[in-house]
Amino acid sequence: MDNSKYIDRKNAMRYMGCPNGIPSGLEAAVEDCESELCRVMTPRYTYVVRSYEDTARILSGEDIARHLSGCHKVAVMAVTLGASVDELIRKYQSGDVARAVITDAEASAAVEVLCDCVQREIESASGECTTTRFSPGYGDYPLTLQQDVLDFVDAGRKIGLFTGAGGMMTPSKSVTAVVGIGNDGPSRSAGCAGCGMKDTCANRKDL
């Protein structure tokens, strides 16, 4: 399967703290890591579209309410690159940490591309526009609801995505998100202003 469409090198470099692209001397390593990542990843996704009322029990906080206001439907999605990506990163961590760091960043970027693909599918299936993605952990939407979000879309059975005792998703290169459907205006963004990390984040956009 051709997974190279999920590679977003520019974003991966940004995650790695290299805003000017691949640092010199690492071109070959980055290319190797990308092709290994493409070889092992098994991108999977699932989503359900429900009314706002039906999803209410997995939503919490003012931020998400604001984010979804004006939407008549809500899509709840879960995506993962699969357990073998974690395995690959673990393997590199034991002997070639530079590759682990590169692969980790590339995988984080790839899972975002996968989310974009799913979101486009939701838009084309519904024929309406959507808000940006809003995930547990953003603003005041608590991370403790992660398991409920996963249960809501039956993520364990459908795509093999679970949480551990600490609430962390396994496989780790995974995303759950809520997307509002049918808001009238332009695509609404969660932005940096509502983020708990805004004071320390190196990737913060200007508020």
Partner: peptide, 12 residues
Amino acid sequence: TLYLPQLITAAD
């Protein structure tokens, strides 16, 4: 003047 992956490559 040098980035994280280069630091780690050197350290590895």
